[in-house]
Nucleic acid binder design. Structure first.
Length: 502
RNA sequence: GGCCCGGUAGCUCAACCCGGCAGAGCGUCGGACUUUUAAUCCGAGCGUUGUGGGUUCGAAUCCCACCCGGGUCACCA
């Protein structure tokens, strides 16, 4: 138990005890409300329009967010998930019931019934005839005027953030609508939503460090998936022509404004489509989702107005890098030469980095921050795209694109490589690069996946879409933590001063 | 991991430069008040100043180390 602030808790405890002594159950099992606070306000405004003296009755429930005592009259604001309603309590209306107020605190849940009216100040209020406690809060809510500012506590105790900062509700509601809209978009186009394993024997399908775990009965090491890609492609092999999965993937990497170790990704695969089809699909879907979730197809993000409507410009990666950095990738076919050239341009680059990673860095430094309006960066170099089909015209590049908006990467897609021999060769290259460039994350060879490919996979267009980043974009959040209810935070250490010591 | 910023009452923050009794608002407790809107008014209580060490007659304040958080760079989506 925390030593400090014990006095404040004691006050609430003694009120709790007093309620029990008075025969009041501080935690009753049920309470039937007839209206939410928003419904009650709507009920009154409608009635008032028809008859100015109307006083419809309602029973409402919520958490006390503010109390203004005036002696024999008290105003209590209660909040529920949709809104807020002012309760007006008078001793002569409540009689003995008015004394219940002595044992109520901010944060308690109450139920009240009475007639809806408009006060002198013009606020729709419930003139309470009966008041009851629904749940006593033994700890105080965050400060009512400044709200909860402590960023750490906002994430660790998100419920306090939700109590104090109503806009958090709005972001999460929008997140939910975005996910529903995305699902509907796929469902309406004949895609089947599937679930593939989270615990996998080979953490493949992306370039990322996995989380490791262990299955006891099988005595086997397993990993948390870093992507759903290879399982979904197995389904394409199996004849499920349009599939998608919306789920959590896990990457054992740093945490910052754009990264959380577990995040929600959508991957979809469509047989007989290519990356051009996927681009058209995505640039159609995003504005449709935005319209459904936010009511518009433009968003303001980090001081910019973004227009999400199709078509989005397509820029070849090679040209974008050339334009923004002055470096022509084709002049530097090997990693060492490219690293030298990058250092000339004041970009940190070493011989310990693969060519793919160096190019990725060039994109990150010179191109990505410039891509504010939705843009497709297309035709990625082969060595950084082991699962994408090479371009027939120029095998140094693949039929791959990434979509950017607000200076963030939000999607990654390609014409899927379906030649099993080429795929094996590409993944073997990844394994070789991994040995050569220690500490660099590269894709892994998954024999079982290659076996599936040998059974034949039709030409396929695949897409990976970062849902959290899409939510950031559509809610104007510049940190991923604000679109996750419970972002990863460090384990509170002993110095945090908030933990118990034996 | 590097660099920058921060940690003071339950909460939001002052005081720190330039060392000298640790303060305000909210919340809490007591009192007044039957139409308030961060209600108001009167009174009271509230502190291991993140932790440990050092300098000093004296440290929230200066110095060192560490812990925690945020930002940023590196890495990643």
């Amino acid at each position: 138990m925390p030593q400090r602030g014990e006095r404040l808790l004691r006050s609430r405890r003694s009120k709790l005890e007093r309620l029990i002594e008075r025969g009041v159950d501080p935690f009753p099992a049920r309470f039937h409300r007839t209206h939410t606070t928003a419904e009650a306000v709507a009920l009154f405004t409608a009635a008032e329009a028809a008859d100015p003296s109307a006083a419809p009755t309602a029973t409402v429930a919520g958490r006390i967010s503010r109390m203004r005592g005036m002696g024999k009259a008290t105003f209590v604001d209660i909040d529920d998930s949709g809104g807020r309603l002012q309760l007006f309590l008078r001793q002569d209306a409540l009689g003995e019931g008015y004394a219940l107020l002595d044992d109520l605190d901010l944060g308690d849940f109450v139920g009240a019934s009475g007639a809806l009216t408009r006060t002198k100040a013009g606020e729709v209020s419930l003139a309470v005839e009966a008041l009851s406690v629904l749940a006593k809060a033994l700890r105080p809510p965050p400060e009512k005027f400044h709200g909860l500012r402590d960023v750490e506590q906002r994430y660790r105790q998100r419920y306090l953030d939700l109590i104090a900062n109503r806009d958090v509700h709005d972001v999460m509601r929008t997140r939910s609508r975005i996910i529903s809209a995305v699902r509907r978009f796929f469902d309406e186009r004949g895609f089947l939503e599937v679930d593939t394993p989270v615990l996998v024997p080979v953490p493949a399908g992306a370039m990322a460090e996995p989380f490791v775990t262990e299955h006891r009965a099988l005595d086997r090491r397993l990993y948390l998936r870093i992507a759903t890609e290879l399982y979904l492609k197995r389904l394409i092999v199996g004849g499920m022509d349009k599939v998608y999965e919306l789920g959590r993937v896990f990457r054992n990497e740093g945490i910052d404004a754009n990264h959380n170790p577990e995040f929600t990704m959508l991957e979809s695969y469509e047989a007989y489509a290519d990356y051009e089809d996927v681009m058209r699909f995505l640039e159609t879907m995003i504005p449709a989702v935005a319209l459904e979730a936010t009511g518009g197809t433009t968003v303001s993000f980090d001081g910019h107005e973004l227009d999400l409507t199709a078509p989005w410009p397509r820029i070849r990666l090679h040209e974008a890098v050339h334009e923004h950095s002055g470096i022509d990738l084709d002049d530097y076919p090997d990693a060492a030469a490219l690293a030298d050239r990058m250092r000339q341009a004041n970009v940190a680059a070493t011989y310990a980095e693969s060519r793919g990673r160096l190019i990725d860095k060039l994109v990150g430094v010179f191109v990505e921050p410039k891509l504010i309006q939705p843009t497709f960066l297309v035709d990625y170099p082969t060595e950084m795209s082991p699962l994408a089909k090479a371009s027939a015209a120029d095998p140094r590049y693949t039929e791959r694109f990434e979509a950017f908006a607000g200076g963030m990467e939000i999607a990654n897609a390609f014409s899927e490589l379906n030649d099993p021999d080429v795929q094996r060769q590409r993944l073997e290259e990844q394994e070789a690069l991994r040995k050569r460039y220690q500490g660099e994350e590269l894709d892994r060879l998954d024999e079982d996946f290659l076996l599936a490919l040998e059974h034949g996979m039709p030409p396929t267009g695949g897409l990976g879409l970062g849902i959290d980043r899409l939510v950031m974009l559509l809610t104007g959040s510049t940190t991923i933590r604000d679109v996750l209810l419970f972002p990863q935070v460090r384990e509170p250490g002993p110095a945090a001063g908030k933990t118990t010591d034996a």
